[in-house]
């Protein structure tokens, strides 16, 4: 359950990063240039896909009744954390996605 929970958390954060970077304003905020339209659409799509995967992970962690409740909590808090971090440490806020995925994979391998 804990593994699915942390997986859901990482995916929720990744999803929010995707949606956020799919917006011109925030892409520019990190990279100082505009994203190509294809990239922008790809980021948004990946963001939605990641949020959907996070939903699946929440259901795996808690079941069909509690899963959606937990999922709303996860995406809300993940989004809020991203918004707070983005202006202070733009690159770091994106780096958290691979770092989180790596840590989760490592924990999964060890456990």
């Amino acid at each position: 359950m804990l593994s699915a929970f942390f997986g859901g958390l990482v995916l929720a954060y990744a999803g929010m990063v995707g949606l956020c970077q799919g917006l011109e304003r925030h892409y520019k905020q990190v990279w100082q240039r505009l994203p190509a339209p294809v990239l922008r659409r790809g980021l948004r799509l990946a963001g939605w896909a990641s949020l959907a995967a996070s939903f699946a992970a929440s259901v795996a962690a808690w079941g069909w009744a509690m899963g959606p409740v937990g999922w709303f909590g996860l995406i809300s808090l993940a989004g809020f954390a991203l918004v707070m971090l983005l202006p202070y440490a733009p690159r770091l806020s994106l780096l958290l996605v691979p770092a989180g995925a790596f840590a989760w994979g490592l924990a999964w391998l060890i456990a």
């Binding site: 359950m1 929970f5 808690w62 509690m66 409740v69 937990g70 909590g73 809300s76 808090l77 809020f80």
Partner: peptide, 17 residues
């Protein structure tokens, strides 16, 4: 009271935010 400690932490942080 459901969902164990992970859910409790979610509620705690949501409440603080």
């Amino acid at each position: 009271q459901f969902g164990g400690y992970p859910m409790r932490w979610l509620y705690f942080f949501c409440g603080l935010v």
